[in-house]
Amino acid sequence: MAAAAAAGAGPEMVRGQVFDVGPRYTNLSYIGEGAYGMVCSAYDNVNKVRVAIKKISPFEHQTYCQRTLREIKILLRFRHENIIGINDIIRAPTIEQMKDVYIVQDLMETDLYKLLKTQHLSNDHICYFLYQILRGLKYIHSANVLHRDLKPSNLLLNTTCDLKICDFGLARVADPDHDHTGFLTEYVATRWYRAPEIMLNSKGYTKSIDIWSVGCILAEMLSNRPIFPGKHYLDQLNHILGILGSPSQEDLNCIINLKARNYLLSLPHKNKVPWNRLFPNADSKALDLLDKMLTFNPHKRIEVEQALAHPYLEQYYDPSDEPIAEAPFKFDMELDDLPKEKLKELIFEETARFQPGYRS
């Protein structure tokens, strides 16, 4: 834990890192770190609560700039109880001085990944967590956004079992017609939660990839272990087919990539493993919904509104309290091709509203 900075004593240090967030945020305490930044909790002297502050230093890398800009653009436009918001952003007053960006968010005690390492969940908890994931996802999908990296560590939890989806750095506007060349190379989302079509096709992607990830998360809540822990690309596919069985001819016809289709045709026939054999203690309604989410063919996979209306979630289902976005989200430009200098300018502009004396 960093010592509390005395008023006016300059930035606090946390594990050798400068955290320049005073005077409003003090009493910093280390939480963890990701690929390009550290997260601390801090005391907000204005709202009198502890908050989470993520320090991001992305400006050396085009990919990190892209992810940072995506996350900020999306989260500043989203407003939903099951999606983490941005409360404040701290950065230098000029673009030349801006080396880091500090993002202030609600402090959540833990995440689903940490929880599943230590606790076996009751059916009631599984049901409530799944409902909140789908409630947040309904809003995301209504904005025409794909999260693309749903996994237990991106689901934040607090002691009252509130759940918030975080990390929109890989999110995209849904565009089933656009052929994202190089899709697989830039697709760094965790393999275990990846839909089979991501490994088999490169053309376009749809909201059904997020539903697949939610199915993987439900299976993990039922058993405290990942359902498809593939060691590499082909191993991942083999794990999936080992449980779902061989795809039907109709399902194979959806695979545009001939090499991928021929690979699947070359494999020995596998039978589907019954879900109640894998999860003998699970609620039968939970397994019915799991089956509809972990469907090989993305066109037959359940959609988020149908999933919310499934009998497993009937005690929570309330369409009048499951809000959607006001308007579909649009990125003005494809960020993939922009140089990091341009992305830095866009991050600077996007964060201006939090600067003292800002006038829109």
Rank of each mutant, 00 (worst) to 15 (best):
Q119P: 12
F78A: 02
R77F: 09
I95L: 13
L241T: 03
L289I: 06
A309L: 04
T185E: 10
L146M: 13
C216A: 11
P23S: 10
E345V: 14
D124Q: 12
I72D: 06
T110D: 05
G242C: 15
H180M: 06
I103F: 14
E345P: 04
A307R: 08
G32E: 02
T181I: 12
P176N: 01
R172A: 03
P58N: 15
I209D: 10
N257G: 05
L346G: 13
E349N: 03
M98T: 00
V21Q: 03
F129H: 08
F19C: 13
T68Y: 15
S153E: 03
R353Y: 10
R91I: 13
N87P: 01
N297Y: 15
C65P: 12
F19E: 09
Q306S: 04
N253F: 09
V14S: 03
P323C: 06
L137D: 09
D149G: 00
D88C: 02
Y187S: 13
Y187Q: 06
L107P: 00
D291N: 13
I53T: 00
I256E: 10
S208W: 03
A309N: 01
G85C: 15
E71F: 08
R194I: 14
Q315H: 12
Y316E: 02
G22D: 06
A189C: 11
P298A: 10
L222P: 11
G242W: 00
L294R: 00
K342L: 06
D111M: 04
I56G: 15
D162W: 02
L75T: 01
K231N: 14
K207Q: 11
Q355A: 04
W275G: 00
H269R: 00
D332Y: 15
A92M: 11
D44N: 13
I211V: 10
I140P: 05
P323K: 07
P280H: 14
Y312F: 15
S213F: 11
P274Q: 15
P328R: 02
Y36M: 15
A4K: 03
R301V: 05
H180I: 12
P268H: 15
I255D: 06
M221Y: 03
L146C: 01
N144S: 08
L267K: 05
G215C: 06
E220C: 05
E109W: 04
E220F: 02
G34C: 09
L184C: 11
G242A: 12
E186T: 09
I165K: 11
E322N: 03
N201C: 01
F168C: 08
G16Q: 10
A92V: 13
K54Q: 13
A5S: 14
Y64N: 15
S246W: 06
N224Y: 15
E60C: 06
T94E: 08
L258D: 10
E326V: 14
E345A: 01
L112N: 01
T26S: 15
C65E: 13
Q355D: 04
E71T: 11
Q355G: 08
L265D: 08
Y30G: 01
I302Y: 08
